[in-house]
Each structure stands twice: as structure tokens, then as C-alpha cells.
Design a protein around this nucleic acid. Structure first.
Ligand code: SF4
Ligand code: SF4
Lengths: 141, 141
DNA sequence: TTAATTTCGGATAAAAGAGTCTTTAATTCT
DNA sequence: AGAATTAAAGACTCTTTTATCCGAAATTAA
């Protein structure tokens, strides 16, 4: 098990890659797929989820491809995770016991809740531009 | 995507259920499965992972079944998660970028690392007995 | 207008996870 | 010793995720 699905990882890495490209033009998905070693057809499908949510924008045809749908400061990792994997990981209890929740919390409830909230905030507070500006610390691929 | 696999959830819930039972005898897996609404044959397979790691102990035959392999104070949620889902969630970076890690960390690395460590510690510090002792706060099933 | 390019959309295939079934081995009770 | 019970083990099916394939639609360039 992993926290994020493979689709989600692919989406994140693509978004980071696009944010990393200086120009404002469309980049063919095939090019990104090759660069990041992601199956191209699969990536196409994943990116559709992001374009539908305006996180990215796409264009068909000769000069077409994909690019960020807004400026990289305005896209957080949370946005991308939510668009692809949904909000489950930020909401669901990991024990998922019968009769659980706020009314009858198990002893684990509070620490788990804050942990989950932390994860959400951490991702909300990390924008693509932040990652790029500090990119000297790692190869962001 | 979920943090833990379904197998792991089943394992955790079974361990909690066993810890909750007062006696020291073996409980048939079929009985637990019925009580917790888990497919019995599937649960049998999952529990084998726990018995192999001595977290639980099993006995075949008429008075057979399964029970905790040691006292509930000595079993942490971490032990169970590790036995079933492995250590990936405590180790792997969630971005899993090329060339990542301690030497060339991305800007996200430190916060992610501490988050991951927190999760591990949280689970290590929660024993089955702790959950049971505070069980009045929730139905532990 | 035609040819080339590139995403979109739906169908299909492969792999992994979850769940089922059957047989065998161990244990208890009579 | 024999019958009943219960976990172990392996084969098998079903579902979800991941990946591939192909034709259609949109866009550009000539
Ligand atoms: S009480 Fe909260 S933390 Fe505990 S099992 Fe239920 S939802 Fe999860
Ligand atoms: S540097 Fe660390 S946090 Fe960042 S992608 Fe790599 S392993 Fe993950």
C-alpha cells in the first residue's frame, strides 16, 4: 500500500515538470511521458482529470500539448492529489471501526485526526512554485 | 487510495477484537469473521502473516482457533501494520522523485520525513492494551 | 483543402488486490 | 482408533488499478 496511487504520483510529477519549464507554451504529453518515463497513453488519461479541474489546460493539434492551467503559485500539491485521488486520505479514519467518529471516538481518534489534518495542510501549503524555487536541492523529476 | 490495505484493516480489527476478549483461549477464526463481518477464508490467510511473526498464535483442531501471541501491552499497532503491509508507508517518500533522498532532498523532504516518522511513532506508541483500556470511548470492532 | 500532429474517448488487456473454494494436516473428543 | 473440528495451503475467481490500442475530433501548416 502506498499513500498515493500511481496515477496520482504521475500527475504530481507531470505538474512539477511543467512548472519547471520556463516557457508558457504547450508541451506534448508524449514528450513529458518520455522524459519522466511514464506510459504516454496512461498519462494522457490522468491529465484529463487535471484539465477538467482547470489545474492544467490542453490543446489538440500541431502546436498542442499540455501546460499549467494557472500560475504555479496558485497550484498546491493538495489540489493535484484531490483531483486525482480524491479526498479520502484527508477524511477517512485509518482504522475505520464500527460506530466510530466524533461522537464515539476511540482513544486514537484525536491524534489521528490531527495527523490527517497536518497532512492536508502540509500539501495545501506547498505550491508548485515553492518546489521549483527550491529546486536546487533535488532533481524534480 | 487508502493508507492501509484492506487486509491490514482486517488484521488490526481482529487483533483489537482478540485483545478485547477476556479469556486466554483460542477463538475460532470463523467466529471472529462472523462478528466483524470479514470473509472468513480471507481472514484466515491474513492472520497467517500475524502468526508467523508471533503476534498471534494459532491452534488447529477442535478447541483450536487464534489468540494473541503475547500480552496486549506488548503488541503495538505498528507491529501489526508492519507485519501485513510492510514498512513501505513508514519509509518511502510519497513523491518518489528521481534522484531523491537524504543527499539531494527536495524542499518537501524534511516536513515529509517528520510526518512519516510521526506516523510510525504514533502507531508504535499505541498498544492494543491501551486501546482496550480506553474502549468505553468507542465500539472497538 | 489536404496532410500532419496531438488530445480525447472508448474498448480492451495485463497486473495486483480481494475474496472463494477445496483439500490436507493437526488436534480434540468419544 | 475413528469422527468431528479447525487452521494451513494452494488453486481459482472477481474486482480494481494500471496500462495499451485505436479511431475520432481539433488544431496548425502548407
Ligand atoms: S474513533 Fe476516530 S480514530 Fe478511532 S477508529 Fe474511529 S474514526 Fe478512527
Ligand atoms: S527529496 Fe525527499 S520528500 Fe522530496 S521527493 Fe525526494 S524523498 Fe520525497
Amino acid at each position: 500500500m502506498a499513500l498515493l496511487s500511481k496515477s496520482c504520483l504521475y500527475g504530481l510529477r507531470t505538474a512539477i515538470y511543467c512548472a519547471h519549464q520556463s516557457g508558457n507554451g504547450y508541451i506534448p504529453i508524449s514528450e513529458i511521458a518520455k522524459e519522466l518515463e511514464i506510459p504516454a497513453d496512461f498519462l494522457t488519461k490522468i491529465l484529463q482529470k487535471l484539465t477538467r479541474k482547470k489545474i492544467m489546460s490542453s490543446l489538440r493539434g500541431v502546436k498542442g500539448g499540455i501546460k499549467l492551467g494557472k500560475s504555479s503559485e496558485k497550484i498546491s500539491l493538495y489540489d493535484i492529489v484531490q483531483a486525482i485521488d480524491g479526498e479520502t486520505i484527508f477524511r477517512k479514519c485509518f482504522l475505520d471501526l464500527e460506530g466510530c467518529g466524533e461522537e464515539t471516538p476511540c482513544p486514537f481518534h484525536e491524534s489521528w485526526k490531527s495527523y490527517r489534518t497536518d497532512l492536508g495542510n502540509m500539501l495545501k501549503n506547498t505550491s508548485l512554485s515553492y518546489l521549483i524555487e527550491n529546486r536546487k536541492y533535488a532533481r524534480l523529476k
